[in-house]
Amino acid sequence: MEPTLSHYALMVGLLGRAGLVQEAYDFIEKMPIEPDVITWGSLLSSCKVYKNVELGKVAAERLLLIDPDNSGAYSALANLYSVCGKWEDAAKIRKLMKDGGVKKEQGWT
């Protein structure tokens, strides 16, 4: 069986949830196929949980290269900055969203 992009994204998610954020990034860099928004988003989410700003910035940048209007990437990066007490950086990201006309999707309950 040949692994698909979904298999690789799941592995990134597992590593990230286990707190192995650097290992998840290294795994992405060694993937034989191009990572997608799901893969980068999974890493970005893990970076928020484990407060890894540097890898979070990389994940957000890569995600936004694939999907520049992805409001979730902007929000996740701003939230990562907020969780880490980087209030000015969070405000810059939110301003960037506003200036770029990127609308945050409303949550559903």
Rank of each mutant, 00 (worst) to 15 (best):
M1I: 12
E2I: 00
E2G: 03
P3V: 09
T4A: 10
A9N: 15
L10K: 05
L10Y: 02
L10G: 15
L14Y: 06
L14I: 01
L15C: 08
A18Y: 09
G19T: 06
Q22E: 15
E23A: 00
Y25C: 08
Y25I: 05
Y25K: 09
D26F: 00
F27C: 07
I28G: 03
I28W: 02
K30L: 13
K30I: 02
M31C: 11
M31W: 06
E34V: 09
E34K: 15
E34Y: 15
P35S: 11
P35V: 00
V37K: 13
I38F: 14
I38G: 06
T39K: 03
T39S: 01
W40Q: 10
S42L: 07
L43K: 06
S45E: 08
S46W: 09
V53W: 10
E54P: 09
L55V: 01
K57N: 03
K57Q: 15
E61D: 14
R62D: 07
L64R: 11
I66E: 10
I66Q: 12
S71I: 06
A73L: 14
A73T: 12
S75Q: 10
S75R: 10
S75H: 12
A76E: 13
L77F: 14
A78W: 00
A78N: 01
N79F: 04
N79A: 12
L80R: 05
Y81Q: 00
S82V: 07
S82Y: 02
V83K: 11
V83P: 05
C84E: 05
K86P: 00
D89S: 15
A90G: 03
A91P: 11
A91H: 14
A91V: 10
K92T: 10
I93E: 04
I93N: 01
I93R: 02
L96M: 14
L96K: 15
L96D: 06
M97T: 06
D99P: 03
V102I: 15
K103Q: 04
K104Q: 07
Q106W: 14
Q106R: 06
G107N: 13
